[in-house]
Simulated assay, not measured.
Amino acid sequence: MFGASTRLGPVSPAAVTVDLVILTVREETLHVLLVERGNEPYRGLPALPGGYVRDGETLDAAAARELEEETGLAAHRLHLEQLRAYGEPGRDPRGRIFTVAYLALGPELPVPSAGTDARAALWSPVGPYLDGTDELAFDHGMILRDALERARSQLEYTTVAAAFCAEPFTVADLRRVYEVVWDVPLDPSNFRRKVTKAERFLVPTGDRRMLDAGRPAALYRRGDARLLSPPLLRGA
Score class of each variant (00 low, 15 high):
5 S>A: 15
9 G>P: 10
10 P>H: 15
11 V>N: 12
12 S>Y: 10
13 P>W: 09
18 V>Y: 05
18 V>D: 08
18 V>W: 02
18 V>F: 02
24 T>H: 05
25 V>I: 12
29 T>S: 13
30 L>G: 00
33 L>M: 05
33 L>P: 03
39 N>G: 01
40 E>N: 04
47 A>P: 01
48 L>A: 03
49 P>F: 01
49 P>S: 09
55 D>N: 11
58 T>A: 06
60 D>H: 11
60 D>Y: 09
61 A>N: 05
62 A>R: 07
62 A>G: 09
68 E>T: 02
68 E>L: 11
73 L>T: 00
74 A>V: 01
77 R>E: 09
77 R>I: 01
81 E>C: 12
83 L>M: 02
83 L>P: 01
84 R>P: 02
86 Y>D: 13
90 G>Y: 09
96 R>T: 10
96 R>N: 15
100 V>L: 07
103 L>I: 07
107 P>W: 03
114 A>V: 04
115 G>K: 06
117 D>R: 14
121 A>D: 05
123 W>S: 11
124 S>N: 09
128 P>M: 04
131 D>I: 04
140 H>E: 03
145 R>F: 04
147 A>Q: 10
147 A>H: 03
147 A>K: 04
153 S>T: 03
159 T>H: 01
159 T>A: 04
160 V>L: 04
166 A>E: 10
170 T>D: 12
173 D>C: 11
177 V>L: 08
177 V>D: 06
177 V>A: 12
181 V>R: 14
184 V>T: 12
184 V>I: 13
190 N>T: 12
201 F>Q: 00
203 V>E: 07
206 G>D: 05
210 M>G: 06
211 L>S: 08
211 L>V: 09
212 D>S: 12
215 R>Y: 00
215 R>D: 08
219 L>M: 07
226 R>L: 13
227 L>W: 11
228 L>C: 03
228 L>Q: 01
231 P>W: 08
234 R>C: 09
235 G>V: 03
236 A>P: 11
236 A>R: 15
